[in-house]
């Protein structure tokens, strides 16, 4: 039963500018980044301050090129700053030999990606990620790290398992991602999720009687932009109407994980036999 009075086959589509096919540049950049990643991995940030500075210079150059090529708007500048911070935090996380410094790099990366999520109007997820990752996970990981950490750097922190394979695998993965992302073409944006109609019905004692406004093909771009999911209340309504079973299952999984963690972290009982 479809409570919405619009035809799903007749959805209004907003066509943006199609992807620009700057494929070769991006692929070359990715291969270059892979080589730099291998060198950084092999020598670390501590041993090679010179290379770190060279990488930072390259990064600043690339950022400058991007800034000059992208039309300047405030939100794009802020988004790019968050993205650069996220990537720099990730690089610091991967290349730092000191585990606590690496964990701080991870926190930087996650907080910056939270900023990006905030700008994508996913306010609840940005806040929850900040609380869960940067609040709980980092604190508890640092706690365990200090519980288990020796005074000086351990040899398993310095030595890597297989940096060549790691750099090669993730460079090829990033190559595939960049290829598929920068392929020229157009994704048709679907305006409304009609398969999950309950969250679109107006709240109240008699849901379904008063319909919220639905997008139509005759609307202008500003009117259509009002349907962008930017409200946390809409997310909550969708969570507890359309995806109620999934949310309950997630809660059950959390409960099971809590019990499992408590059982696993117990001290083993002394064998009396």
């Amino acid at each position: 039963m479809n409570p919405l009075p619009i035809d799903p086959k007749n959805l209004p589509l907003v066509s943006g500018d199609p992807f620009q096919g700057n494929l070769a540049q991006i692929l070359l950049l990715v291969i270059l980044l892979g080589a730099v990643a291998y060198l950084l991995l092999q020598h670390g940030l501590i041993k090679s301050k010179m290379m770190a500075w060279a990488g930072a210079g390259l990064f600043a150059f690339a950022a400058l090129m991007a800034f000059t090529s992208i039309p300047m708007q405030l939100d794009s500048i802020v988004r790019m700053c968050f993205s650069i911070l996220a990537v720099a935090g990730g690089v610091a996380f991967v290349t730092n030999r000191e585990p606590v410094h690496a964990a701080l790099g991870f926190a930087t990366a996650v907080l910056s990606s939270c900023g990006v999520m905030f700008m994508q109007s996913a306010y609840f997820i940005a806040a929850a990620t900040m609380i869960v990752y940067a609040g709980a996970t980092i604190i508890v990981f640092l706690f365990v790290l200090m519980f288990a950490q020796k005074a000086q750097l351990q040899w398993y922190d310095v030595q890597l398992t297989s940096p060549v394979i790691a750099a090669a695998v993730s460079t090829s993965l990033l190559l595939a991602i960049a290829w598929s992302v920068s392929e020229s073409g157009e994704i048709l944006p679907v305006k409304l999720d009609l398969t999950r109609p309950y969250s679109l019905a107006a709240p109240g004692p008699s849901p379904g009687l008063t319909m919220p406004p639905v997008p139509e093909a005759s609307m202008t771009q500003e009117q259509l932009d009002a349907f962008v999911p930017g409200k946390t209340s809409g997310l909550g309504r969708s969570m507890f109407t359309d995806y109620l079973l999934a949310i309950e299952l997630a809660g059950t999984v959390l409960l099971v994980a809590t019990i499992g963690a408590m059982v696993l972290a117990q001290k083993p009982e002394r064998d009396l036999s």
Binding site: G16, D17, P18, F19, Q20, I26, A37, L41, I70, S76, R79, M80, S83, A86, V87, G90, V91, F93, V94, P99, A109, S113, V116, Q120, Q154, Y156, D157, Q159, L160, T161, S162, P163, I165, A166, A167, V169, S170, T171, L173, L174, I177, A178, V181, S182, E186, I187
Partner: peptide, 28 residues
């Protein structure tokens, strides 16, 4: 716009690749 989507998808891909490097190479 599409270029914004493209940039953010690349950012997600870069984070994923960095995590993959870390998972394959770190020993702690």
């Amino acid at each position: 716009s599409h270029s914004e989507v493209q940039n953010l998808l690349l950012l997600g891909g870069i984070l994923f690749a960095l995590g993959l490097i870390g998972f394959l190479s770190r020993r702690s």
